[in-house]
């Protein structure tokens, strides 16, 4: 009797956790597992026709377009995250200095990230359009003529980076401003009293204390940037050529345009592995960083 009562008591917490566990498995683990299974299947005419082993992985890794898309994604993410971090930090430092109308500044700065990515894509397409856009006339004022931002590989790539910076610097700003506002003021005031310059205070005190928040912001933004799709799909469709074709666009096309679901899932699994390795390295670097044990 006692044993049975103990067993029923012990099951209680698990029963309460069951709905959440089932929901998590249904929306997160099952799709992931299904994707991994799909990556070793061969699809034809939309049908799952045979086991493919590692064929999809081999074909994907031999696909020059996929490798190019990975390289483009890496360049895009690196450029966007670096610029957005620097700009976001700069803006956060500025707004944190008790400026007049700080709340208005905050609202103004975060506005771009409240716009839906598809709308952002359409907006910037109008800005860059060579016939009716304002980009070409504005550059013309500075003596730069006939650029046609979306008309060549380099300018189109820089154009999509600029769009991303415009849209997502506010996120970095918001996270870093929150981080700055939680920093203890005493060490900073002590450093100033001891005669440290503003630059020394920033590098010796603010930055080390802000490091955990900075790390979270960079990781969040990196993961988000890797999955960028809507804006670029609307703006360039990955062109000219393949110059702005990010991994996400190529994987989407492979799955839903070329109906090669197996290959598309192999691409996703490969990217997942790359991201996990990078995340593990990043976490380790933070743990090994100065001031940590």
């Amino acid at each position: 009797m006692v044993r049975g009562r103990r067993a029923s008591f012990a099951a209680g917490p698990y029963v309460l956790l069951l709905p959440a566990a089932v929901a998590l498995a249904a929306v997160s683990i099952y799709p992931l597992a299904y994707g991994v299974v799909a990556s070793v299947r061969h699809y034809r005419y939309g049908l799952d026709v045979a086991y493919a082993g590692i064929t999809n992985y081999v074909q994907v890794l031999q696909d020059d377009t996929f490798i190019t898309a990975l390289e483009t994604t890496a360049k895009y993410v690196a450029l966007c995250v670096v610029i957005e971090t620097l700009l976001g930090l700069g803006l956060a430092m500025l707004v944190n200095r008790q400026l007049r109308g700080a709340s208005l500044w905050r609202i103004g700065i975060i506005l771009p990230m409240t716009v839906a990515p598809v709308v952002v894509g359409v907006m910037w397409r109008l800005i860059y359009a060579s016939d009716i856009g304002i980009a070409d006339p504005v550059m013309g004022l500075f003596g730069i003529h006939d650029v046609h931002v979306l008309g060549s590989d380099t300018t189109a790539f820089l154009g999509v980076v600029l769009l991303d910076v415009w849209e997502w610097t506010p996120l970095m700003f918001l996270i870093l401003l929150a981080g700055l506002q939680t920093l203890p003021q005493e060490p900073l005031e002590a450093a100033v009293i001891d005669g440290a310059s503003a630059i020394r205070v920033f590098f010796d005190h603010v930055l080390p204390m802000l490091r955990p928040v900075l790390f979270v912001a960079i990781v969040l933004r990196t993961i988000d940037a890797i999955g960028t799709f809507d804006q670029i799909y609307v703006l360039t469709r990955g062109g000219p050529g393949v110059s702005t074709q990010l991994f996400s666009i190529y994987a989407y096309n492979t799955a839903f345009l070329f109906t090669q679901y197996g290959q598309a899932m192999a691409m996703v699994v490969i990217l997942l592995a790359i991201v996990l390795v990078l995340a593990a390295i990043a976490i380790r670097l933070v743990r090994l960083g100065p001031g940590t044990r």
């Binding site: 860059y128 359009a129 060579s130 016939d131 009716i132 006939d146 046609h148 979306l150 008309g151 360039t236 000219p240």
Partner: peptide, 16 residues
């Protein structure tokens, strides 16, 4: 042709 024709889709081509 318009100089930006490499970026033209239906909407821009038709507008011209």
């Amino acid at each position: 042709m318009p100089t930006g024709v490499a970026e033209f889709d239906t909407d821009q081509e038709v507008q011209v």
